[in-house]
Nucleic acid binder design. Structure first.
Lengths: 340, 340
DNA sequence: ATGAAAGCGCTAACAA
DNA sequence: TTGTTAGCGCTTTCAT
């Protein structure tokens, strides 16, 4: 017997390629990673040998040896709704082009779960990290600081970002769309606010709604929290019930497009005219907002742009560049349709 | 000088914990990974030491040494639409509970891109792989066979799966929903078939549509391919134009719910009564199908169940268990609403 | 342009 | 129950 104490994985390694190409392992490594450091003849022999034996590099070993991985972590809230779809698609598109892989986790809007995912991603030695939102546990902040990994927070602005932020002014956008209600003549407003786990964007948006009301002296008839804010029909039914329990409501602001569309649909089913009897505005402009006549007046988020910019910013930082402006503020748009 | 040739990463390692806990590194490893193999006192000292120094294990090194990673790869088509949202969410939920991480890639419906992603995932030494669809390049099949990694294909059935499949009968479902059109009295049918990259499920569904027509002797007035099948308004407009270019069409089958909803919306905008003038059916039952009155008659896919079952099956296989039935066939449901 | 030696941080194998 | 030693597959450092 050979006396070896441990057996390999049985897979083809760099050494196998080296043997076939009749060069040393390090030359194979160089030929594959930085072809320019190797003569054309050697390069070709190595490539031929690698193809012949079906070599698949082991990035675990590579990352361990070089202390540099090409994997980035993305902590989303959930993956089963389309809110973050454009963002994550844009993010992965840019990263993929730059040769990075994506480790994805879903926090379920729970800061504790986010912390656990961050810990897990750090132990995989990710080169960078993207987090949706700016609500994080103290433990998460501590780990990130200790690890010194580039981090980009998404979808909000932050006074004191962990590292970099790419987002937009949720409060200002909410204010603007509420002002639209008021301009149309609405005088008794209701706000429907989504409530999921530790998510705080809806509170920021509610603040914008209140800004608009306070500024114009218009009455807030009431505010309602919705716990299943992604279910169109259910949330709409609850909001309509609430409106009917109040007097003379003529305008509804919703912190997302699902609740807004639900309210629209339930109103129509109940014979309430939109926007004549009640005007409705939402936030978010996925296709759902445009399919139900007369179309939802809402805020178009820079969702794709957030993902794109976040990825580019992260890549820059991972490449070692520093920034004067680690905070990118993107624009939202007011989309006027029939509901307000 | 110490004479060491290479410097560490500067991060805290197992050895640091061992030093603080005054035990050997392997004991730290055991205390953290299989606490039952270590005395209670030792376990506590190690845990205390690890917490004190803020130890974050390096899973790259662990996976390399043990030749066993806790990472699974998922190749989706795209992440910016909700079709696969429930599937991927269910998949990640189950895997997360089992302590696995998810590496995600988007093929953009291109088999070549899928192959590249598979190669990348294999070089990260994933413990298992999930692929949407059963359309793969020969190269991808070869790599997977060589790697011997557990693979689960999703959303379709396969005569000869790579390893395991979890899906449903797309053809039978399409046939059933088309039969609904025919039962309602439709006699001149149109099929709208989505066309994106190398995706083949829509062809399978078209076959089901043709089955229903052939079986009943009902006429197929025409078939149209739609290249932007996810855009509700645009695809709907194209389909309506096509219908109008034909004579006496009274029933439309669409291979997804976006085209179907688009057709519904455009018909209504054009004053065509649905279902009285034209009946419409689709496939897929995300919220969009239920919001536009009178509601879309469609197929409810077992999307969540696919992800859930796929994850469980993959976990079993990764744990080394074999199966008699590597093919799981899940049920779809016909959802009757107002459009047919 | 190419190679030899050492070691990244961890765990398997063997030993006590 | 705990420790010693070797080595996973690769890349760094230094040398030629």
């Amino acid at each position: 017997m050979t006396g070896r104490r441990r057996q390999g994985t049985g897979r083809i390694t760099l050494d196998d390629v080296a043997r076939v190409a009749e060069v040393s392992p390090i030359t194979v490594s160089r030929a594959l990673r930085s072809p320019e450091k190797v003569s054309a003849a050697t390069r070709e022999r190595v490539e031929r040998a690698a193809a012949k034996v079906g070599y698949v590099p082991n990035r675990l070993a590579g990352a361990l040896a070089s202390n540099a991985s090409r994997v980035v972590g993305f902590v989303a809230a959930t993956l089963n709704n389309s809110i973050f779809g454009e963002t994550i698609q844009a993010f992965i598109d840019v990263l993929d082009d730059a040769g990075f892989q994506l480790l994805v986790g879903a926090s379920g809007y729970q800061a504790e779960r986010e912390e656990a995912l961050i810990r897990e991603f750090l132990s995989h030695r990710v080169a960078g990290l993207a987090l949706v939102g700016t609500t994080h546990t103290a433990g998460a902040r501590r780990m990130l600081a200790a690890a010194g990994v580039p981090v980009v927070e998404l979808w909000e602005l932050a006074d004191r970002p962990i590292d970099m932020v790419v987002g937009f002014d949720n409060r200002g956008a909410a204010r603007a769309v509420t002002e639209r209600l008021i301009e149309r003549g609405c005088r008794r407003l209701v706000a429907a606010v989504s409530l999921i786990g530790d998510e705080r964007r809806s509170e920021t948006r509610l603040a914008g709604f209140r800004d608009a009301a306070a500024e114009t002296g218009v009455a807030i008839a009431g505010e309602i929290r919705i716990e299943q804010p992604l279910l169109i029909n259910e949330s709409g039914a609850r909001i309509l019930d609430y409106i009917r329990s109040l007097d003379g409501v003529d305008g509804v602001f919703c912190t997302n497009e699902f609740m807004a569309t639900g309210t629209l649909v339930r109103c129509q089913a109940a014979g309430i005219r939109v926007p004549d009897d009640i005007a409705i505005v939402g936030m978010g402009d996925t296709q759902i907002a445009s399919v139900v006549p007369p179309g939802l007046t809402t805020i178009r988020f820079p969702d794709y742009e957030i993902g794109h910019t976040a990825a580019e910013t992260l890549i820059e930082r991972m490449a070692g560049r520093d920034f004067d402006t680690p905070s990118v503020r993107l624009d939202w748009n007011l989309v006027l349709r029939g509901t307000a």
